[in-house]
Design a protein around this nucleic acid. Structure first.
Length: 362
DNA sequence: GTATGCTTTCGGC
DNA sequence: TTACGGCCGAAAGCATAC
């Protein structure tokens, strides 16, 4: 049975929210930035609106670089406000949830959904539903999004990416092969620079090239698991179901140090608010964690981590602080100066009250 | 060989 | 000339047990 899978992506999300709240920004280059606090311009661009993209500024580049690129224009540099965007995101996801059979949020600004049932398997009906979702998001939240409808998750994501902003692309089963074939392989989820290079060596440039390779050929290059994944993805036969995501599996916080340092006290002082924040978020959700990691980023921006797994889950802040201190010591001992440092907790269990409740219900 | 668990790195947005 | 965040989930890598 052919599925109707959808993918929704909020257009240049953070920057669009800023435009929405301040319409005078609409025709300017708008950059939502993460300021690290080290120097005035230290940090990166998180999201750029389309006007800024036309001028060569995109997400991930240093703010100082963007400043140079946009010298002489009236560009708006805006500090990122994640909580604000999360509010908009939650309301949009709720609209989506009301209109689909199953939905799977995969980021703050995107989600997969399945409408096979309520569209009765019809792509015409599916198109109407996608249209309705888009207009509800626009009416209720004043935001545009791009939506794709196709038979699988991978093809739905390609479809939402096909026309943006404010796009709606529907790819029925009979059009699927022609739609995917000409696209470069790196458009496929899970194929980055490294895999794309390796594929290019084997004469594979487009998704169509990849679909024509058989599994044994790919097995030699990438191993069996990856071979099957690549083959199915490129052939439009990926069968990953759309599934509601459960609770978060990790909670982390990373900061940039005022200056590079290997001094444990100096680092712990700056890390303390992040530790408090992580502990607060864990407590709010009633979680117990068993794994604690310290993340260190060196001056060359490479990332190193050290992890400690506890005997038993805890929510105790002094345990968190002690373990962090210990892991940090190990990390700076081996690596020397750090530029940024972070803390992560994971391997969650429900709080005792909740687990006895679920036991009782069972 | 296979399943499992833990640590580290990778890659998307 | 250089410039450089903060999250998340999953894969990869490795060890151990059977």
């Amino acid at each position: 049975m052919t599925r109707l899978v959808g993918h929704l992506d909020l257009d240049y999300f953070y920057a669009q929210v800023e435009e929405l709240e301040n319409p005078s920004l609409r025709n300017l280059p708008v950059l939502v930035c993460v300021y690290s606090g080290r120097t005035g311009n230290s940090g990166v661009v998180s999201t750029a609106n389309y006007r800024a993209r036309e001028l060569g500024v995109r997400s991930g580049i240093p703010i100082a670089f963007a400043k140079k690129r946009l010298a002489g224009t009236e560009a708006a540099f805006i500090r990122m406000d994640r909580e604000k965007y999360a509010g908009y995101s939650e309301r949009v996801m709720e609209i989506l949830r009301e209109n689909v059979d199953v939905m799977e949020q995969t980021g703050i600004d995107e989600a997969f959904f399945d409408i096979t049932k309520r569209a009765g398997g019809s792509f015409e009906a599916g198109t109407e539903m996608a249209s309705l979702i888009k207009s509800q998001v626009l009416q209720r939240e004043r935001l545009t999004c791009s939506v794709g409808i196709a038979p699988t998750k991978i093809s739905a994501k390609l479809a939402s990416d096909f026309k943006k902003p404010d796009g709606l692309t529907v790819v029925g089963p009979s059009e699927l092969a022609n739609f995917m074939e000409p696209m470069p392989v790196e458009k496929l989820y899970g194929i980055g620079d490294k895999t794309a290079k390796a594929l290019q060596g084997a004469g594979v440039v487009t998704i169509g090239d990849l679909a024509r390779k058989d599994i044994p050929q790919l097995d030699d290059l990438f191993g069996q698991k990856m071979a099957v994944y690549l083959h199915n993805s490129a052939s439009g036969e990926d069968d990953e179901p759309v599934q509601e995501r459960g609770k978060a599996t990790q909670i982390s916080r990373i900061i940039t140090l005022k200056r590079n340092s290997r001094n444990q006290d100096e680092i712990m002082t700056q890390l303390a608010p992040a530790l408090d924040d992580v502990h607060k978020r864990v407590a709010e959700k009633g979680l117990f964690f068993r794994s604690i990691s310290v993340i260190g980023i060196l001056s060359d921006l490479s990332i190193r981590t050290r992890t400690k797994t506890l005997e038993a889950p805890t929510s105790d802040s002094s345990t968190l602080n002690r373990a962090t201190s210990e892991l940090l010591g190990a990390l700076v001992g081996e690596l020397g100066d750090l530029r940024r440092v972070g803390i992560k907790v994971a391997d969650f269990e429900e709080s005792k009250e909740q687990s006895s409740l679920s036991e009782f219900l069972r």
